[in-house]
Each structure stands twice: as C-alpha cells, then as structure tokens.
Design a protein around this nucleic acid. Sequence first.
DNA 1: AAATTTCCTGCAAAAAAACGCAGAAACCTG
DNA 2: CAGGTTTCTGCGTTTTTTTGCAGGAAATTT
Lengths: 249, 249
Amino acid sequence: MLKKERQAYILHQVNLHNKVLSSSLCSEIDVSEDTIRRDLQELADEGKIIKVHGGALSHSFNHVHFPVNGVYSQNQKRAIAQKAIALIKNGMFVLTSGGTTIIEMARSLPPQLKATFISGSIPAVLEYMHHPNIEVILVGDKISKSSKITVGSEAIAKIKQVKADICFLGTNAIDAQQGITDNDWEVVQLKKAMIESSKKVVCLSIAEKINTIQPIQVCALTEIDALITELNPGNPALQPYVEAGIEVL
Amino acid sequence: MLKKERQAYILHQVNLHNKVLSSSLCSEIDVSEDTIRRDLQELADEGKIIKVHGGALSHSFNHVHFPVNGVYSQNQKRAIAQKAIALIKNGMFVLTSGGTTIIEMARSLPPQLKATFISGSIPAVLEYMHHPNIEVILVGDKISKSSKITVGSEAIAKIKQVKADICFLGTNAIDAQQGITDNDWEVVQLKKAMIESSKKVVCLSIAEKINTIQPIQVCALTEIDALITELNPGNPALQPYVEAGIEVL
DNA sequence: AAATTTCCTGCAAAAAAACGCAGAAACCTG
DNA sequence: CAGGTTTCTGCGTTTTTTTGCAGGAAATTT
C-alpha cells in the first residue's frame, strides 16, 4: 500500500467517524504503529486532522465537542458492523441492501479486503467506491428518492441473475412470529429477490427494532441464516431467534 | 514497445485501478525501472497522473488537491450549465454522462422542471435525486472507481434500449479534426452508446478543453448537434465548429 | 504511586529516486 | 547515403525516502 493511499484512507476514516485510533488503524492497514503515527503527524501538519494522544480527530468536530451520539445509535451500529465484517472473506460476492447499518458496515470494511459488492443503494455504493480493493456492481433501475435505492422490475431481474455468497439485509422490523417486515412495497420486493439470490442471508438489526412489526412481510424467520445485533448472543431477548434455528451473533 | 504505447498503457492502468506500482509496471511491460520512472515523471508533468514514491495515483484519488482551479472553473461551468438547461423542456427524457460540468448542470436545474434523467454517473444521480420533480433512472453495472460511473456491457445494453430526447456529454477533449476524444476505453464505449440512443447530442466543454486531443475517439464532429462552452458563440475559437455544421451556443 | 500505553528520538536497513553516462536507435540534413 | 544530432534506454553510483525497531520520556490509567 502506497503512503499517499494510506493517508487518504486515514483521512477518509477520520472524516467518516470523526475520530480514529492509531492502534486500530495499524491493524487495519498492516503497518507498524510508528508509520501510522508519522502519517497522522503529517496529516496534522497539513491541517487535515487534529492529532491527539492515541489517535486523531476530525477538524470539523473540534470546536463543538459534539457527543459521539450525534448520529442515531451509531455506536450500536458500529458494533453490528464489526460482527458482520467478520463474515466476509476474500473473493466473496456480497449482496447488500441499504440503510444506515449497512452504511456503517461499508465504512468499516478493512482496506485489504478483496471482494465484490452488489447493491442498488446509492449511499452504500458511495462507500464501497472509496475502498481500494472492492469491486462494485451497481444494480440499475428507477431510483426511489425516499429510500435512495433503485427499485423496479429491472433491478429485481438483475438481482435474480446473480448468486451471491452472502447477503446483508438492513432491517426495519423483525419479529419472532412475523419474521422480517418493512413498510415500502417496492423495497420489500427487492429484498425478497436478494434473499432468493444468496446462499446465506444475514440480517442486521439494532436491538430496538427487535420484536417490532411493519405492514409488509419480507420473509419468514426460516429464510434467515444469521441475525446480528449489538447485543450479546446470550441475551434473553434473542432466545426466540436462537430457538428458531437462527445463528445469532 | 514504443514509448507512446507504454505511456498510454500506464495511463490506462492508472485510470482503471486508481493506482499503479512502478515495480509491477516494469515487470508487466519488460523495461527497466528507470524507464518507468521517466514515463511517470512525464505523465505527471503533463498533469495526467500524480506521481508518488513507489508508483503513481489517479487524479480522482485526491480531488481535494486542486480547489483553486476547481473554484476558478466553476463559474465557467455554471455559465455552461445555464445554457444547457435552456434546452431541457418538461417531459423530456434526458441522457447524461458524468463529469463536473454535468454535475454543475444538475445542481442548477430549476425546481419546477419535470423530466426523466437517465445516467450511470453516481455523482450526477446524487444531484438529480435531490430534485423534487425529476424521475431518475440509474444505469447499473460495474462501477469504474476513477470515473465514478457504471461501465460495461450491461450498462451499454441498457442505454441502447432507450431513445432519449437529448443527450448531454461532459467532454474531456474536443478537436475540429478528431472530434470528441477521451482517455478511458470503457467510458468511450458508454458515450458511444449514449450518442446512438439520443435524438439530439449536446456537447458541454469548457474552453480550455477545446482543440485538445485524447488517445481514444468517442465520435466525429458530425455526430454532435450542439456545442456549449462558456464563450460567446461568435468567438473565433469556435468558428471551426460552426463551419462543421454544429449549433454553437 | 505504579503500571500501562503512547510518543519521540535516533538509527539502520531496504526500497525507490535521482544523477551522470554511454551505447543504441531514430531522426534529420545537406 | 554519410555524417551529425537528438532521443531513448539501461547501468552503476549516490542520494533520498520510507519504514521498523529500540530505548527512554511523557502521558494516561488503575
């Protein structure tokens, strides 16, 4: 990895997460801590970031000591993202929906990961695009402005053409009886196609969406292979899903 | 292998992968590392790539780098955008490429305009999406990270399915003899398809790109219906194009 | 206050770049 | 076409950059 490339990655991470730990950086990119520190120093000298003990901060969030809680449930989503990333191996074909949890996952993907990501979500694709080693396939069709993803028969047809290794679904509502449900008919159609086209279906959901129901069903619990939340897998709230035969992470 | 040939290959690799290692280049093409380094130096001097220790990077990698020129030409691009917008009527199907001039046009679209925009450019689509009355059709396929548009046979096939009223092409180089030329093979294929699929082809180009040539031809001047620059239509620099039968605005 | 983590300094090895040079190829040019 | 000039390329040497490492200082945590 080139030095400039590394610094671009660091800068990207800082702007995204508003902070960055040099320890985590040096394990993500595989270099010594000294190198990271020197990079941070250079970026700080250029005024791009603010160097602090243990890492660096984004410039914008310097003046106002904004609580990290600025984005809705970002910490929980980040925890989910970390668990999800562990499932992605080099060379995989990965199908993803949209949603803030998926975005958080996209932002946290390690730079050395080589994989192919397929999605119709504009924000997700924007994130994938920034990663050096990821191939991005964009599913085209009419854009739904509310959900910022492509919807329609063309998109569904394209998704049905692929057979992905794994599929990550951002979830609006999940319930032990009703399975996954959502409130946008077109998005539901798309998610159904994604589930069909994947060997393994992984559902990402923050705890507060567990045991909630939306009007339209995406799929039953039986079609899900794994469920990832920010909770400990042993948490009693997750027991119904364990009993339903889902791998809870 | 000829020097020009070598440099074209290098440029292609850089545009394709956003980065290139001089070590890998000198084993791919079978020449000494000095030769590669000299080539990189020349390309960097021409502003085609960014040379760094160990290889080179694409310009798109750190587009934060030239804000001066960015702001400078923004006014010109805005002038072009205004002229282009005048050509769009309610109900039209509009096909657009990518590029900063197109983005500027997208930002300037009047809010009451009702039309359907078709594009494979992610940044352009992002802008269209914010518009209240525009339908957006996204052309899907593999994403080229350097140009931030979808490229490939799927994208071309989709474009050929439509018959747009008008097509706006952001231009990298235009010349009275060579017509429109570009430096990315895949982007060229896409633009060719766009030209075929449109009743009217409008070329947007800032003055500094007029009478410049890139390696690969997109189309001859005869295929262009209109040319928009920030210059006055009577400007002598534009006369060759007027004489070629192009409507110069 | 002790322990752990992080930071800085200097140093050394490896990689890359710059430099000068010389042979070879291409290209004028009369 | 002969002779000269320019351009291009590879090689050896020197210089610079980059990176990791060690040891001590500074800061943070327990």
